[in-house]
Design a protein around this nucleic acid. Structure first.
Length: 270
DNA sequence: CTCCTATCCTGCGAGC
DNA sequence: TGCTCGCAGGATAGGA
């Protein structure tokens, strides 16, 4: 569900809502997420003040004047903030944070692929560069893909190669770069890598401006939907005419790559 | 190593 | 209407 633009949008919302607030109590209603939430969250957080909410890859980092907490939204995770204490517990509410000023934040996650843990020095050890950062260059990507026979789409979704790109934005970036998702990564030319770096940045940047893409679950912390789902050129558009091809008979295909639906136009993406 | 598949979990829509 | 099947934005263990 949430890729970089969605996580970044949630980050902004959480940062605005939580900075300066002091934890009063932590309620771990259902600790068995993808990994078990540590019990001592409810002991060590109360009394701590939130100083910032940051993002690394698809992880949120809640910094306090003590330890930092990491949250991953998995496929269906959602944080909602409120100026008051929640009146009722909704299905799949797994974590409730109550603050000293009477406000609250709730983590809801139907599929429980999310994570809530302490930040450690190992948490981000295996991650590749941020796509919107200065390290993500055509030289870097060319080097990272060199000699690899896996499909280019699988590799740009591999968080060790570059972080933050998931199934939607991989499809959209490859379309804009006119590269087939089925291409062997090692056969991507330098010119194509240059285009791909550019379109990944472009698509992620535009999606952040739109507040992310809301297909079903994803919402901003305010509960609002994102807007980028209305700008998809290929994602979830199987059978529809390619918006980038003059030929009306060029339609969007859907093939499975690395177990994921992969939408593209076989005419303009080679 | 690298690549690919299955798997974790729940909900929902399509098709019968 | 109600059932079953397949699929969903992520990440990772394990087999080939």
């Amino acid at each position: 569900m949430p890729e970089l633009p969605e996580v970044e949008t949630v980050r902004k919302g959480l940062h605005t809502a939580l900075v300066g607030r002091v934890f009063k109590s932590i309620h771990l209603l259902r600790p068995d997420l993808r990994t078990a939430m540590p019990n001592d969250l409810s002991e060590k957080l109360p009394g701590r003040r939130v100083v910032a909410v940051e993002r690394r890859a698809k992880y949120l980092v809640i910094r306090t004047d003590g330890p930092a907490v990491v949250s991953h939204l998995g496929m269906t995770g959602r944080w909602t903030t409120s100026p008051s204490v929640p009146s009722a517990r909704a299905t799949h509410d797994h974590v409730v944070w109550l603050f000293a000023d009477g406000s609250s934040a709730v983590f809801n996650d139907p599929r429980r692929f999310g994570i809530l843990e302490w930040l450690t020095e190992h948490t981000f050890a295996a991650l590749g560069p941020e796509p919107l950062g200065a390290d993500f260059t055509a030289e870097y990507l060319t080097q990272a893909l060199r000699g690899r026979s896996a499909k280019v789409k699988a590799l740009i979704m591999d968080q060790r190669v570059v972080v933050g790109v998931g199934n939607i934005y991989a499809a959209e970036a490859l379309h804009r770069a006119r590269i087939s998702p089925r291409r062997a990564a090692g056969r991507i030319s330098r010119a194509e890598a240059t285009r791909l770096v550019e379109t990944i940045r472009q698509v992620l940047g535009e999606a952040i401006e739109q507040g992310g893409s809301s297909i079903s679950d994803y919402r901003q912390v305010s509960g609002d939907r994102g807007g980028f789902q209305d700008r998809f050129l290929v994602y979830d558009r199987e059978g529809q005419p390619c918006p980038s091809c003059p030929d009306p008979k060029a339609t969007i295909k859907n093939v499975v790559i690395a177990g994921r639906s992969s939408f593209y136009c076989a005419k303009c993406q080679r």
